[in-house]
């Protein structure tokens, strides 16, 4: 049957998986499992499992980074298996994947720009010491007294 399922005469080889659905269900369970791990890690952020948000800032950033990497893993499985990009020709795959590499620059450039605006505003263009360094812990201490 699969020989007839070709959309155009220019397509030389049928790239379809006409076998079972085992791989698809396997990916479904991987996506579900990764999502549950992400939810548990995110729930920890809500319930302050990782300690004081100001003191343990670095560790919380690490947890958030780990959640981002897990999301990228989900994206890899969705694109590679559900969208069948993994079974396309390498040349075609590269026209898409290489273009998306632009995002690496895009993310680094703009997030560091935002961070720089914050620092400039807090220090009035680096002419004053960072105000938030002193203000934030004081407000925190007042809150915990309630």
């Amino acid at each position: 049957m699969s020989e007839q399922a070709v959309a155009s005469p220019e397509i030389s080889y049928v790239n379809h998986d006409t076998g079972g659905t085992k791989r698809l269900w396997q990916v479904f369970w991987i996506l579900s499992f990764v999502t549950i791990v992400e939810l548990i890690m995110g729930f920890g952020l809500a319930k302050h499992w990782y300690g004081d948000p100001i003191k343990n800032h670095g560790f919380i950033l690490f947890i958030k980074g780990a959640i981002c990497i897990l999301s990228l893993a989900k994206a890899y499985y969705i694109v590679g298996v559900f969208m069948h990009l993994g079974s396309e020709l390498r040349n075609f795959r590269m026209t898409i994947v290489v273009t998306l590499v632009l995002f690496v620059w895009f993310i680094i450039a703009f997030l560091s720009d935002g961070n720089s605006w914050k620092n400039m505003r807090n220090t009035r263009g680096h002419s004053m010491p960072d105000e938030t360094e002193q203000v934030a812990p004081a407000a925190k201490a007042a809150d915990t007294k309630e």
């Binding site: 959309a7 790239n15 075609f92």
Partner: peptide, 24 residues
């Protein structure tokens, strides 16, 4: 994952076939 293996040495860009083996 694909069940059909593509033979090596196919000239994809010589015309007459889709170079990406996919429809427009």
């Amino acid at each position: 994952m694909s069940t059909t293996t593509i033979p090596t040495g196919v000239k994809w860009w010589n015309g007459g076939r889709s170079p990406f083996n996919a429809s427009y």
